[in-house]
Amino acid sequence: MTRLKVLNSYVDNLTMSQTIEKVEQIIQKKIPTQHVVINANKINLMGKDSTLAAIVNSSPLINADGSSILIASKLLGKPLVERVTGIDLFINLLNSCEEKGYRPYFFGATQEVIAEMIRIIQTSYPKIDIAGYCNGYFEEEQSLEIVRSINKTEADILFVAFSSPKKEYWVHHNLEELNIPFVMGVGGSFDVLAGKIKRAQKYGKKWAWNGLLDFFKNL
């Protein structure tokens, strides 16, 4: 696996299929592992938050979520082979769960959103054995209790649907207590899958260019 440096972040130069292969290796090893993605907004957040930057850069698996990351990599002479968005990886891993019997746990969003998403998953992926789910509304002192509850399910994958940087912080702070092999922050993916919000354009040229201008200020 080739790891490149794009501005203030590392990123793994992987295709979607190579990423899924890495995830499956992580699941087999059964060592709790944090996955992250980077985009223009994350790069900007990392430029202002050294702790977040350290969390992201210490993650064993980092994908390029934003098209502006691909543009930046080309301009810097370190072209990435493919954009691997968080939501596309999320959906591909649902397919893997159905095909290979991995048991996912879903954590985050409102109760209404997560209940609707679970209903849709059960309809669209009837063979998936859902380990469990919980909405994302809790007090910080409840985190350990939630982690213990998740651990009891013996899930293979934990999808955490918080916004950044909350999801990166929560996963990092609780990773040692979790016994879930693969832990992935998925942002607003639950809302998208539940049909509550529309997915952002896959290639938003104006957004990508503006984001690119913003994070090149970090040079």
Rank of each mutant, 00 (worst) to 15 (best):
T123W: 12
T123Q: 15
S124G: 03
S124L: 13
S124W: 01
S124N: 14
P126D: 02
D129I: 13
I130M: 08
I130K: 13
I130A: 10
A131E: 02
N135Y: 03
N135Q: 06
G136W: 02
E139C: 07
E141T: 06
E145H: 05
E145G: 12
I146V: 03
I146N: 03
V147L: 10
R148I: 00
R148Q: 13
K152R: 08
E154Y: 09
E154C: 14
A155E: 01
D156K: 07
I157L: 15
L158Y: 01
V160C: 14
A161F: 01
S164K: 05
P165H: 03
K167E: 08
E168R: 11
E168S: 11
Y169K: 15
V171K: 11
H172W: 08
N174I: 05
L175I: 11
L175M: 12
E177A: 15
E177H: 14
N179Y: 01
I180Q: 05
I180N: 08
P181N: 06
V183E: 02
V186R: 12
V186I: 15
G188I: 07
F190W: 06
D191L: 11
V192G: 07
V192A: 10
L193R: 10
K198Y: 07
Q201E: 06
K202T: 04
Y203G: 03
G204S: 13
K206Q: 13
K206P: 00
A208F: 00
A208V: 05
N210C: 11
G211A: 07
L213E: 05
L213C: 10
L213Y: 00
